[in-house]
Amino acid sequence: MRITQGTFSFLPDLTDEQIGRQVDYALQQGWAVSIEYTDDPHPRNTYWEMWGMPMFDLKDAAGLLTELRECRKTHADCYIKVNAFDSTRGFETMRLSFIAHRPPEEARYRLRREESEGRLLRYTLERA
């Protein structure tokens, strides 16, 4: 099944042209874009690997797309996401984050149920 984290996972995979337009939007808002990748998209895996630092002084989307292509070449078997970070007071957090590359085979997780006292179940997600 498709991992549906990220802002646009229910749409067909974005083309580089579409990714570029989202990056332009982020830059217009004054947000810093960055790239992260992982081979473990567990929903609680907060810290994906950083592909360089957030691009605080980027002027247009071309710079990000160049880096994205590099990252895809090196980590074709990983998930890669594009983030946009807003440093405005009261936010100081991500404002947009979408998957920009998927591995040939999607990661799958299985629910492990541990039976506890009474009818209580304790749940864990593990890689299938």
Partner: peptide, 18 residues
């Protein structure tokens, strides 16, 4: 609560989303 959380946990596993 029990049935709803079984549903939530299963949907999380299938989608990889919280």
């Amino acid at each position: 609560f029990s049935f709803c959380m079984e549903a939530v946990q299963k949907a999380q596993a299938a989608s990889g989303e919280v």
